[in-house]
Write a protein that binds this DNA or RNA. Sequence first.
RNA 1: GCCCCCAUAGUCUAGCGGCCUAGGACGUCACCCUUUCAAGGUGAAGAUCGCGGGUUCGAAUCCCGCUGGGGGUACCA
Length: 506
Amino acid sequence: MTGDSDTMAEITGPVRVRFAPSPTGYLHIGGVRTALFNWLFARHYGGQFILRLEDTDEKRFVAGAADDIIKSMRWVGIDWDEGPDIGGPHAPYVQSERKELGIYQRYADQLLASGHAYKCFVTPEQDEALRAAWAASGERPERYRFRGPDRDWTPAQVAEAEAAGRPFTIRLKVPLDGVTSFSDLIRGGDQISIRNGDLYDLVLLKTSGMPTYHLAHLVDDHLMGVTHVIRGEEWVPSAPYHMMLYQALGWERPTFAHVPNILRQDGKGKLSKRKDDVSTNRFWERGYLPEAMFNYLALQGWSYDDKTEIMSRDEIVERFTIGRVQASPARWNPDKLKDMNGIYIRSLPAADVADLLMPYMLGAGLIADPPRPEDQSYLAQLTPLIHERLEELQEAPELLAFFFQDVQAYEPKLLIQKQMDAARTADMLRAAHAALNGVAAWTVGALEEQLRALVESLGVKPGQLFGAIRVAATGRAVAPPLFDTLAALGRERSLARVAAAAAAIE
RNA sequence: GCCCCCAUAGUCUAGCGGCCUAGGACGUCACCCUUUCAAGGUGAAGAUCGCGGGUUCGAAUCCCGCUGGGGGUACCA
């Protein structure tokens, strides 16, 4: 682990970083976190943040995924200085488009010419056979590393195969001996080393002419002036190949920082789109505030000090340094996120929360779409009653349903309070009905005054009276504060429900 | 299997050789407030700093081994 000062020492000139998602599906929160760290790094050091689409996987391409990714990033508040949607000095920012320009082919050819790569005519079937032959020869299967039989072919042999129309890939000619190492900002600048013999001849350009990630990202990073590569730790094992490519191409290496993965809640593996409900758009659907998500995600692997957790975007930008990013993986903790979301919701003015709640009310069918002005004002009136109880905005319809729907049936069990019975409860409710009927002004203050007086005259405990009226008015044992609830419900409906409840237990 | 990375309470984390009888947060429990539920307040339980060796006057902090976890092992990223 390295201190801030160490890291600062390494970051002097202008920085340029990028987030380069593959449009193979929606963006899950782990991806957003990686994007966020890049963005924070750029903003903290006053550099640029680039968005680039790495759509070199023709088989897994998903239409619409790119738009979804862009939407997710914008939602949490990440913006970019250059990208596919806004262009920039290094456009295009979509790799399939860059491939059409011949960019990757050019460098593959350079590598071929310098002898760092070779045309490999091995078909998938032959690949299998090669592996089988290795095992059959008595070698340990796990030691197998792909080496094309054609890696040292003469120009004539290559020409002949090409003339025969045999398809080929271009592979990196990995040195058989030696060690490749690199350092990583997050791992304390220590050298990570791997023996070249443990590496295989990586495909750089596919048969289709499309580059693999390894070639494409590296060429683009170089061409786009990327100074720091901040990416997920799943890239650590392939980083040595990247080092070889920088050297072979004669390019200066950027600085690397591999951020830890976010593990699944049970700790068994990293977050996955298939197994975990972590698509970013699911969170705005459920009513997470982007500020809360931003804050939570920033804390997944990064911390400011020993106690500060709630921080604004600006504060996080100001405080973020790569040196305080953990090397060990974080664990996805939805409870913590939810708690934080509640904190952010509570920090908002009730009027703002009411506006945020409207879509959920419409979605639940409690308010007809489009809402009328009186619907808006009613929701604004109700919001303070549940404001501090919300952890996700989607909880609102359930909490407010009884304001919009009649109570279907009363459960005597809920209506009858401690140390009460059906008859006494019915009597008490009738008395409450009479008392409420006599309230001149239907206000919170008047209602409280009247009902507290009734507690006195009836000689019951506050909880017994208020509990029964609460169930009568709402149909449930858990609801917002009683006087506010009755006031918002209105005289007519309140009286009708209290009468109905009394009748229900006779 | 092989290669790489990581290792402080159930979880997220602070800790950078003496300030640590290991701090904060989520979660859990109790109490206070109180008409229920929340919110808020107070407090508690919970970590022999994964284990074992070293280095040092002194180690959660440095080194080694082991164990455990994670990642990688594709013409996927």
